[in-house]
């Protein structure tokens, strides 16, 4: 099977790995690169558990070809904490009991990060819109919405 070398930036560090022909970004990140942060939930682009940021914008990694990130900047939940310091979203999810099983959390956090990066003080409706493609079966969403709003607040007042 043909393998293609893919060079890209993952959470700030340059990485190179071989992708199988037709391999999607989710499998490439997990099996090829060893970043287990993004999760498989459906493989159909309908649950959001695999959400990563590519050049700052949220993407469903299960629907994206691995080779499409060549030369681009990929961010996953694994890089959210920097230099030992948690991201305000991570702190807010912990304080707000915004995760139960934790399986949707990596994708949820990345969708929220994309929002806060471009809109530091979103309204509740904008938060709802931003996580509209990310399913959670445990929480009923309310704690997640509150946590994202709290993180925005925390960043603004920090």
């Amino acid at each position: 099977m043909a393998k293609k070398p893919v060079t890209f930036t993952l959470n700030g560090a340059e990485r190179a790995a071989f992708a199988d022909d037709g391999e999607n970004l989710l499998q490439f990140l997990r099996r090829g690169v060893g970043d287990l942060g993004p999760k498989y939930g459906c493989g159909q682009g309908s649950c959001g558990a695999c959400t990563v940021l590519v050049d700052g914008a949220p993407h469903l990694s299960c629907l994206m070809l691995a080779e499409a990130v060549a030369g681009r900047r990929v961010e996953t939940v694994s890089g959210l904490a920097r230099d030992g310091a948690l991201h305000p979203l991570q702190e807010a999810f912990m304080d707000g009991f915004a995760a139960q099983c934790g399986y949707c959390t990596p994708g949820m956090l990345m969708a929220a990060k994309a929002l806060l990066d471009r809109n530091p003080r979103p309204s509740r409706d904008e938060v709802v819109e931003a996580i509209g493609g990310n399913l959670c079966r445990c929480t009923g969403y309310a704690p997640i919405i509150e946590a994202i709003l709290a993180a925005a607040e925390r960043r603004a007042t920090a």
């Binding site: 459906c42 159909q44 309908s46 649950c47 409706d125 938060v127 709802v128 819109e129 996580i131 509209g132 399913l135 079966r137 009923g140 969403y141 309310a142 997640i144 919405i145």
Partner: peptide, 17 residues
């Protein structure tokens, strides 16, 4: 066969509890 046809309330559909 997917979450587009298996429906659940999203974050915009929740009610105050």
């Amino acid at each position: 066969v997917d979450f587009n046809s298996y429906l659940m309330p999203g974050p915009g559909d929740i009610a105050p509890h």
